[in-house]
Write a protein that binds this DNA or RNA. Structure first.
Length: 504
RNA sequence: GACCCCGUAGCUCAGUGGUAGAGCAUCUGACUUUUAAUCAGGGGGCCGCAGGUUCAAUUCCUGCCGGGGUCACCA
């Protein structure tokens, strides 16, 4: 970067850096030993017995300065929180003047003793301090005011969404609630992994680069392998590979990983997103329903110490059992007609009557899907299993054991969005081939999202897959729900953005 | 992809057809228990980019870039 582009604050910091180097002070040292964290000190300081904290060493980023001549206070932020640090000229005869060359954003280590100030704040009284990293560019400096009731009022908060997403590291420094969201995300994923491991299932990793993409209906990202000179696709789902592992004799396999879909981005969609998929041999979708109920119920209990959460101001209960309802019963309830028996032309008329806009060549599946997602889905607030979908919507699900035209599939809806999708997995290779052929016809008619025939997958089914229950959970949406976030971008550390313009 | 809103100092934001203002941050000075520290003084802006209208544009118009939102597409 051209030096002329630096503003006064950045120039000043470079001068300070030079000052430290000329003084023989390393501005970027190699390590520092801490004995305590901010949180530990704040939680454990005892006014009647300060001795245990009479010699602490902490490290963190300077977030505020209050300089008062021969005394200075600043707030030091480490990963656990913020603690006030006190510097007194009398106690730091040689070093006190160095404080002048420190800025908000610098990282320092502080050794000293803990005491409580007149104003009642637990504070580290500095005996010695060390520069650990000179920050050369200023960060936003929101100020936090606490009113008499203890409510926190944040002034000059860093709110520009574009900058917050592009410079997530700054967002994380400055907006503590963002750190909490991602801690909770990690906790959720860790809980799920433990839960599945404890049930004895095997965590596996399947290819992200795939010669044939499958397992969902979506447009893929295409890439190229130079040595093999072939195009490969980034996976849109794990499903077909995990089922191959069930064929291989593992009786419970799961994967938590990224999928990639080359489609629109909005509040609910990011091009790469995290999914859990799990397949368990000898089980059907009724068993999977109980699994989902128990997994989510224990997850919520573990994180909230309650089976109720609040999302967008609404109390959501994860008490078992969740509601279960047949998709076509919902249609009857909301539309007043049994849609199962209707043909494409009748469905089209009904959709028009409901005021839905449909493309001219909409097939039966698209119309049903449209009616469901527009009219019914937004009303599914409390956890609700919707089950028994039309066969055309679900090319990898097993035909219903008693209801013609339907498959054994359910989806779980909470707060109007889909959290889980599960089937009794189709394991009849003859049927699977026919379903793929149906998809090929849709593709021929211009449906770019229709599935592609995967001969090797059919071959695997011919080798033989036991009856299997399968499940997919959108982890990002689950995290949104459990952290009360309205946009998927707020639960993904580095959401997809357009290229950064040069002038930013 | 369509439509609506937004883009002004490091951050949060005002404002005007005559090339800009506040608070915080920053700099100088004062201040040895402050906490949105305070007090006094100073510096800092291609007003997103490009073009047009105009004597004159940051302001009005058009296009572009970036962001947010709604819809479409999509689980």
């Amino acid at each position: 970067m051209d030096i002329n582009e630096l503003n006064d604050q950045r120039l000043r910091r470079r001068e300070e850096l030079k000052f430290f180097e000329e003084k023989g002070i390393e501005p970027y040292p190699y390590s520092y030993s801490t004995t305590h964290t901010a949180k530990f000190i704040l939680e454990n300081f005892d006014d009647t017995n300060p001795a245990p904290l009479s010699n602490v060493s902490i490290a963190g980023r300077i977030m505020t300065f209050r300089r008062m001549g021969k005394a200075t206070f600043c707030d030091l932020q480490d990963e656990t929180g913020r603690i006030q640090v006190y510097f007194r000229k009398d106690d730091l005869p040689e070093m006190y003047d160095l404080l002048k060359y420190l800025d908000i954003g610098d990282i320092i280590g502080v050794e000293g003793f803990v005491f409580r100030t007149k104003m009642g704040e637990i504070t580290v009284h500095t005996r010695n301090f060390t520069l650990l990293c000179k920050s050369l560019t200023p960060i936003p400096v929101p100020k936090i005011e606490e009113d008499e009731k203890g409510n926190k009022i944040v002034h000059d908060q860093f709110t520009d969404k574009e900058l917050r997403y592009r410079r997530r590291y700054v967002d994380l420094i400055v907006n503590s609630e963002v750190r909490e969201v991602f801690r909770k995300r990690a906790k959720i994923i860790s809980f799920i992994r433990n839960y599945l491991d404890n049930r004895g299932w095997l965590e596996v990793e399947t290819p992200i680069l795939q010669p044939i993409y499958g397992g969902a209906t979506a447009r893929p990202f295409i890439t190229h392998h130079n040595a093999l000179d072939i195009d490969l696709y980034l996976r849109i789902a794990d499903e077909l590979y995990l089922k191959r592992l069930i064929v291989g004799g593992f009786e419970g396999v799961y994967e938590i990983g990224k999928n990639f879909r080359n489609e629109g981005m909005d509040r609910m969609h990011n091009p790469e997103f995290t999914a859990l998929e799990i397949y368990v041999a000898y089980k059907d979708y009724f068993w999977v329903m109980e699994l989902v109920e128990d997994l989510l119920n224990s997850l919520v209990l573990n994180i909230f110490n309650s089976d109720k959460i609040v999302y967008n101001g609404t109390i959501i209960s994860f008490e078992k059992p969740f509601q279960k309802v047949d998709m076509f019963d919902l249609f009857t309830k909301f539309i007043g007609e049994d849609l199962l028996s209707k043909d494409e032309i009748e469905l089209f008329k009904i959709a028009k009557r409901l005021g839905l806009e449909l493309p001219e060549n909409s097939n039966k599946v698209k119309i049903l899907d449209e009616i469901f997602s527009e009219i019914i889905q937004p009303t599914l607030i409390q956890p609700t299993f919707v089950k028994d979908y039309p066969i055309e919507m679900s090319p990898l699900a097993k035909k219903h054991r008693s209801k013609p035209g339907l498959v054994e599939r359910f989806e779980l809806f909470i707060c109007g969005f889909e959290i889980a999708n599960a089937f009794s997995e189709l394991n009849d290779p003859r049927d699977q081939r026919e379903r793929f052929e149906e998809q090929a016809k849709l593709r021929a008619k211009g449906d770019e999202e229709a599935m592609v025939l995967d001969e090797d997958f059919i071959y695997a089914l011919e080798v033989g897959m036991p009856p299997t229950g399968g499940l997919g959970i959108g982890i990002d949406r689950l995290v949104m729900l459990l952290t009360d976030q309205k946009s998927i971008r707020d639960v993904i550390l580095f959401p997809q953005m357009k290229l950064e313009p040069k002038n930013l």
